[in-house]
Design a protein around this nucleic acid. Structure first.
Lengths: 202, 202
DNA sequence: ACACAAGTTGACCATGCGGTCCGCTTATGC
DNA sequence: GCATAAGCGGACCGCATGGTCAACTTGTGT
């Protein structure tokens, strides 16, 4: 059998542990931000600290895995939204989902300020997401409802902007909807004013 | 002399040291974010670590002092902008100054995500700033150039939003101007759509 | 049933942090 | 000048963290 896999498949309990670890990490990060200790995550997952480092050589790579996972989640919902009938509504819904993600996950807000984004894994996920955003924007733009000088990158940026405005503090009241709408209005074609062009390097 | 100050005035060198400390802290925070060590700041200021803690009992209070200082800077420029002829331009310029502040200071971006904002000193400065923003917004709104349902709080929020969008990474190219304009367009009266109301608690 | 490798674990280590303390220096008032 | 207390500094402490390791457990193929 020439096409045989060289390495044995991972043990069953290892797979289980990995899963609990990922779940625990996702929860812990969401609740307390990216600076929860590895020990705490391990405890939460019901496994030893050593096991964590067996699955992820470093804490950085763990966080990278979680963050990139979140990005991919959003990319997936974005991709399904590409099938939606109304491009404008779809774009708004996409952005809404993005902000919701940020609001429900403290670590995700911090991620924007941190070096995690340098990580190749995260970079890749971000690029995938960018592609989806670009497609969604394209559709809306083609329909003329969105100003012509807006890129997918812009949409992503404005999305993170909206959730920043959403007051990451005790405000669970959903004030972010207000700001998202405000920003979304700025994206609309009607009443648009010319935008300063992006500097050459970008 | 009944109105005499109870405590002796601080020593001259103490004043000097305090000043270097503040300058060093401001620079260090701006460059490396809020997690620079106290020792590093002390070294940078050319004083001992103990001296830092003499002036500020805790690191938290140091950061609070710096952050509130920055907020006050912005409040000052805002106040002078109140005298400007064109309310719209004034508002835009105010927001521009705010974003510029964020972009030039890594710690300031992080501050939005952290607990520093709970600190009473910071709270007070933020309130002062809020007042100025409210006044500036009022003027612009009264002239009808800004949509009617916008508050000063909104302006502040959108300001921090803009600088979040400004890609706090290596991007020194000033792409944030683009996003600020985009957001500012969303604040304009023309083409505005009704905003979802703020939840009751806010 | 067995042997063995894959996997687990928690004690352990090095490091870096915020914060303390006490002996020393120095500005200040007379 | 001198006495005095305000100010200074850096060795030091306790603590938490990311990461390692060697002894032990357990799933798996035969």
């Amino acid at each position: 059998m020439p096409a045989e896999s060289q390495t044995r498949p991972p043990r069953a309990d290892a797979v289980r542990n990995r899963e609990s670890l990922l779940v625990a990490a996702r929860e812990a990060f969401a609740e307390h931000g990216m600076d929860v200790s590895v020990s705490e995550i391990a405890q939460r997952a019901g496994i030893g600290k050593g096991t964590v480092f067996r699955h992820f050589a470093t804490k950085e790579s763990l966080t990278a895995a979680i963050v990139s996972g979140r990005l991919d989640e959003l990319a997936v919902t974005g991709r399904t939204l590409l099938e939606a009938a109304d491009p404008e509504a779809a774009l708004l819904e996409f952005m809404t989902a993005g902000v919701e993600l940020h609001v429900s996950d403290r670590s995700f807000c911090q991620a924007a300020t941190t070096d995690v984004r340098r990580d190749p894994v995260v970079r890749a996920a971000a690029d995938r997401l960018s592609g989806v955003a670009e497609a969604l924007t394209d559709r809306a733009r083609r329909k003329g409802v969105i100003r012509g000088d807006i890129t997918g990158q812009d949409v992503i940026r404005m999305l993170t902007a909206a959730c920043q405005a959403a007051a990451p503090d005790e405000d669970v009241t959903g004030a972010w909807r207000r700001y998202l709408h405000l920003i979304f209005d700025g994206l609309r074609a009607e009443g648009a004013r010319p935008l300063p062009p992006l500097p050459p390097t970008a």
